[in-house]
């Protein structure tokens, strides 16, 4: 039981540090930084309390914000992702969710990746939707949503396959 919380804490801190020390400085093609801390919502246990998840997502987003000087954009985006995580899981995994021993790791690849993709879509839409007020034109925002989304997805899939053994 405690093992689970220890892993969760390490994962949380690890994701924040990886995000702010590595992925925020990648600047692929000049300005694209994948937001891999979204993986927290992918790895978070399915049966856990939703209220706790929303609270944790606030802390997660806020810690990333503290490091990135983005005020509370990451906080708002990660809150929204946490809120919509349950409906997305319903949509992707369907009836399987009802089983007590359901695990994301046991579902099909397609389901896993579409779950991740939907999390990224919700997150990036909120993040860049709020950033719209500080960006001069719409085209730039759409470009950033698209390219950042793709890069987050690619790095997300890589990291998921890298750590997939640990969850069993």
């Amino acid at each position: 039981m405690t093992d689970k919380y220890v892993w969760g804490t390490i994962q949380f801190i690890g994701l924040v540090l990886a995000q702010v020390l590595v992925f925020n400085h990648l600047n692929i093609l000049g300005s694209i930084n994948p937001m891999i801390y979204i993986l927290f919502f992918f790895w978070y246990p399915v049966q856990e309390n939703r209220t706790v998840l929303i609270g944790l997502s606030f802390i997660l987003g806020f810690s990333v914000d503290l490091f990135s000087d983005t005020m509370a954009l990451h906080t708002a985006a990660s809150l929204t992702t946490a809120f919509f995580r349950f409906p997305i899981m319903r949509f992707v995994f369907g009836v399987n969710m009802e089983f007590q021993n359901f695990r994301i790791a046991n579902s099909t690849r397609v389901q896993q990746y579409s779950f991740l993709a939907l999390l990224i879509v919700i997150h990036h839409l909120t993040f860049f939707g709020l950033e719209i007020f500080s960006l001069p034109n719409l085209l730039l925002i759409l470009k950033r949503i698209l390219f950042t989304g793709i890069s987050t997805f690619v790095f997300g899939v890589l990291l998921i396959s890298l750590f997939s053994g640990r969850k069993e």
Binding site: G61, A72, L73, T75, L79, L130
Partner: peptide
């Protein structure tokens, strides 16, 4: 929490 974060952003 969302309202709090929006408030912090607008500030």
């Amino acid at each position: 929490l969302f309202i709090i974060s929006i408030f912090l952003t607008i500030q």
